[in-house]
Design a protein around this nucleic acid. Structure first.
Lengths: 197, 197
DNA sequence: ATATATAACTAACAGTCGTTACTTGAAATT
DNA sequence: AATTTCAAGTAACGACTGTTAGTTATATAT
């Protein structure tokens, strides 16, 4: 009971440090001895807190996935135009990433090192998420808000590429804050889709 | 002499297969034994053709980098408006990637596993390339072709994110060919920047 | 003071890593 | 026919991998 609670604290320290390491070196190139060294302990001691290296990766990937799902569900629940929905979806996605840039980078770049069946589950969630954005775009094309000349797969993939690379270059100490970043990004992308911008 | 020429052929087979493997599993998770197995030979036999695992990665990364540089230099040499230049730059970048999607994916995702001083050199080339695109955007802002309300770093990073993820999702057997893809991508991105599109 | 939980330790395992040294058989060149 | 080049082979190296088993010191709760 209290076991679980106080475990969490130290366990989360381990997971957070692992996220930094995985982001920097990549999951496969990051060893448990590297991680232990960063925490000032021995590699074997890590296993008092976590079950395996991959458990850490799973935790990072699926926790982020849950955050993204939550954000998008809220956006979908509101009855607004497609362009407004897309805009809110983008802003929400950016906000979720900005809350943990390190985990976001791992989520994006290292998920492929998940083993089955976790990898399958992860990819299914991801496709589902992308398709929901695609639906918003299609809705916007149907309502006449968006051009119909652009390939929808291209549009949604371009959107996700832009969003997902953000954790790689965004400096949280920079002049532009995450909300502004989301707004500008949405503006840049949505107005690129909009007819008669 | 003839040594170098006929070596090239087999060496290139090795490098190409390595590119596929590196793309699929990531550089660090791909072993020389995996690679050898794919080629139907023993791991040690690889070293008749290449000096080291990293030499393969270097070859892939720097060859792609040279192609990108060449493409951009040609675009810059023509005296056209900034939006036309940006458009041509995007199309050129896409064309270079389309010529070798596998190597492009490795270039983009695995370059960080280069050791020093190669990593430093690589990153310098990359920054230089990005800055030249940034200059084109700045030129367009100055000439009034592009909005000045959008952060230039954001704009150029969004651009590169969109471009660089293409090898991850583009299916060369799909309905849309690389040139069309380049045109649509350029249209989507450039018109998103343009004032009064 | 005693019991419990936490977080660390040492030692070691079986397996994999990139790579080297040396050898061999076939093909091409002289 | 003799020599060289090419592409592969076998065996093995030292280092590193994730992980386990079992132990110990410290802090907290009873």
């Amino acid at each position: 009971m209290s076991e679980a609670i106080s475990n969490l604290s130290r366990k989360e320290q381990v997971i957070r440090k692992a996220a930094e390491l995985f982001k920097e070196k990549g999951y496969a190139a990051a060893s448990m001895r590297d991680l232990a060294h960063l925490l000032g302990i021995e590699a074997a001691s890590l296993y008092s807190h976590i079950k395996s290296k991959e458990e850490i990766l799973r935790s990072l990937c699926f926790d982020m996935a849950a955050e993204f799902q939550k954000s998008l569900a809220e956006v979908e629940s509101k009855n607004v135009t497609a362009s407004e929905k897309l805009r809110n979806g983008i802003i929400g996605h950016i906000q979720v990433m900005a809350k943990d840039l390190t985990a976001s980078a791992v989520f994006m770049n290292e998920h492929r090192h998940l083993s089955q069946p976790y990898l399958r589950d992860f990819l299914l969630m991801r496709i589902n998420y992308i398709n929901r954005f695609k639906s918003i775009i299609e809705q916007g094309v149907k309502s006449g808000e968006f051009k119909d000349s652009i390939d929808k797969k291209l549009a949604v993939m371009t959107l996700f590429s832009s969003l997902n690379w953000m954790p790689m270059w965004y400096d949280p100490g920079s002049a532009i804050d995450p909300l502004q970043l989301g707004l500008q990004l949405a503006d840049m992308l949505v107005n690129g889709l909009k007819k008669n911008a």
